[in-house]
Design a binder for these strands. Structure first.
Lengths: 228, 228
DNA sequence: ACAAAAGTGTTTTCCATACACCCATGT
DNA sequence: ACATGGGTGTATGGAAAACACTTTTGT
């Protein structure tokens, strides 16, 4: 093995959530060169005996305080241009993480330097992170159509209206609440009723749902056609 | 950098084509341990100053004799379980390559040990290549629906019937030739007429097409619903 | 003439959209 | 009572499936 060039391998995370001001990405500010003081995706080196998804989970936990499977986590892609890191040959495996807007504000974690930024204002990131973020956004937008991924942005129990807000935020569109309701409740395995309804809200109480067992949506939730 | 664990990085290729006996994958037979004599996906180590897609192209050229952009090539995913290679910590970036059935049988290349095997009989591959192959097949099947990827299995000029054979082979279904014809010719940017027709075939000559400029299909070519 | 494959027209069925309308709660 | 949001019913338009039918070649 020693005859082959050594690489450093990192994982970087595109962590997305939905907040009052729209879709937001978790960024850290770099404290050391290269790209000192620049915003960057959270990430770090993979350990010698660590699986890649495990490394991604660890980094996510370090930055958000989330333990285990509270978030959706999937591999996004690998970026390995020879000059992407001035320190040497570093290949990074990017992961996409989707989280509900956390009610508990990440107390007592290493997330000191991390902050949420609306995706529209996440620009001029360190390394090739602009591209990685763009790829992550594109992936999220596309997968909402044909997978139940939108539920990853919701807490364990949620209403149809909350789910619709996810679609409207990620896609930056408006959806007809009535047809949306019929679509998602009619797609097998997408949602299962939690058996209770909301209280104390304005208007008629809404049924509460949990994520269903489906891994793909048939039929898909079609994105409206402003160009495409 | 020296404080972080060194990894070896390889690229592995899932090279698919369509032959008379169906969908086939390019495999080599390993000549050295580990997994000596086992079939494996072609691949190799990434060089120090080599970009990842470039390494994939190089490996593809070495195994098939194909120069440059004669094939579709896309990143499939990265596999880095700590124990996946007994020789040490090796992370592999898998690429998916789609080729037309080559009329010229790869003369005079290093492809001595490489051979096409129907995907149904590609089993018990070295390392974690069974899983990588399965992921590649799944990716190819899914992307036929909403991208013009099927044309990557066709020569530069082809007929609608040839294209339909691609779909039928990859999906293992039958498609109505008449509705299929209408669909693909009616999808903007999918196909552009080459202006000529086939000769010397049985039946009425078919119009010849080339790949169009579209990168996504609207509407998609829907896969029939045997379960799903 | 006939077989074979390409391609078109037509009917039917289904689904998405649009939107009128009713329901259940807070104020 | 009224506003607010949840949820259902229904008409309509367009696309996809099913398939009859025509076209153009080789044998």
């Amino acid at each position: 093995m020693s005859e082959y060039p050594p690489f450093a391998v990192t994982v970087d995370l595109v962590v997305l959530t939905i907040r009052a001001d729209g879709l937001a990405v978790l960024l850290i500010r770099r404290g050391v060169p290269p790209y000192e003081d620049a915003p960057a995706l959270p990430g770090g080196f993979v350990r010698v005996d660590e699986d890649l998804p495990r490394a991604a989970e660890r980094e996510l936990a370090e930055e958000t305080g989330l333990t285990g499977a509270a978030a959706h986590l999937e591999q996004l892609g690998t970026y390995g241009t020879p000059d992407r890191d001035p320190r040497g040959r570093v290949v990074t495996v990017a992961y996409l993480a989707l989280l509900p807007d956390l009610p508990a504000p990440v107390a007592g974690t290493d997330a000191a330097g991390a902050e949420w930024l609306p995706v529209a204002r996440a620009r001029n990131l360190a390394f090739d992170h602009d591209r990685i973020l763009a790829d992550g956004l594109e992936r999220a937008r596309a997968k909402l159509e044909y997978t139940p991924l939108a539920t990853a942005f919701c807490p364990p129990e949620f209403t149809v209206a909350q789910l619709r807000t996810v679609y409207e935020t990620v896609w930056e569109t408006r959806l007809d609440p009535r047809n949306f309701h019929r679509k998602v409740t009619g797609t097998p395995g997408f949602l299962v009723p939690a058996g209770r309804a909301t209280e104390g809200e304005r208007g008629r109480p809404a049924q509460v749902f949990r994520r269903g067992p489906a891994t793909a949506l048939h039929p898909p939730i079609i994105r409206p056609t402003p160009d495409r």
